[in-house]
Design a protein around this nucleic acid. Structure first.
Lengths: 156, 156
DNA sequence: GGATATTTCTGAATAATATTCTGACAACAA
DNA sequence: TTGTTGTCAGAATATTATTCAGAAATATCC
């Protein structure tokens, strides 16, 4: 079940991670391979779900999303967190991440809104609807120094 | 200094966010525009830094990165967190995000490693070198339910 | 209002690329 | 050996990116 990736695959992933819109021809040139061979590998990486998708990083401020916050959500169910709660949280568009975490708190979510009043409004209107939420603890981000979902590609 | 985006720009961003590798021709077809016009807009969005980049989402497990953790880092400097500390944290490849946060803790980082022993090893070898770190509080992620840097595109 | 920039668009030409296909080659197993 | 599988190169062609000239729409200024 474990996917095996050789050095060529890792080279492809490294370059595509840094620039998802690199042309197949450029990629082939950098790897000294035929475009058809590289394309074949990329398609397989997509099929094997090693590549999960291609996304464009948008400057949040340019679309009026200036507030970033992390919220710890404690469930009244204790350690047996229902996945329906997680699904309900994930369904909120402003919620970018939902993590089930170890410890007394149950979930950690990452949320982005235009401003703090919008966040509060959202918490009142949306989070209140979700059952089994006992308490929340919000951490406001003042400044983001680094933010990349850039993974460390292992070297062979 | 504020960038103005019209409805066409937002349509482009929405589609490219979902699929960064959409062809310019397809994009033009969906928007009922000439490819040259769409291309011109995309180039401008890149120039204006509204589009910050294109990235490939890689399944972390496929490259042996199975552990995700958030670490709150308290600085000994109190509220006057030096940016050099942030830079040092950001320089660690495994550290994906560095946020300067409100409250008593100073930084919140998101970090991804192969396993928990690698994380501990990393904290011993890397974090210890960074000056002014008073304490750390680590939250281990058991399961990620949602993870997208997908922003909410405003409607006009 | 009216003249003049400025921006944004279309449409066509061409340069470049993606995609498909065939067959070669190597590694491996029966 | 024989067959299988996977990966590759190279050529053909389908599709696309890119460039450009000019039209249309928008904004700017007097």
């Amino acid at each position: 079940m474990d996917v095996v990736l050789d050095n060529t695959d890792l080279q492809i992933l490294e370059r595509m991670q840094a620039n998802a819109r690199i042309s197949n021809a450029d990629l082939a040139r950098e790897l000294n391979m035929a475009p058809s061979a590289v394309l074949e590998r990329v398609k397989k990486l997509e099929q094997k779900k090693v590549i999960q998708g291609y996304s464009t990083q948008i400057n949040p401020a340019s679309i009026q999303q200036k507030l970033l916050a992390f919220i710890f959500i404690r469930s009244s169910e204790g350690f047996t967190c229902s996945s329906s709660t997680a699904q309900a949280l994930a369904a909120i568009p402003e919620v970018q991440e939902v993590h089930h975490i170890a410890g007394e708190d149950c979930y950690l979510i990452k949320i982005r809104t235009t401003d703090s009043s919008t966040l509060m409004q959202l918490m009142r209107s949306q989070l209140q609807k979700i059952p089994n939420i006992a308490s929340t603890k919000t951490t406001i981000v003042l400044e983001t120094v680094k933010e990349q979902q850039q993974l460390v590609i292992p070297k062979i």
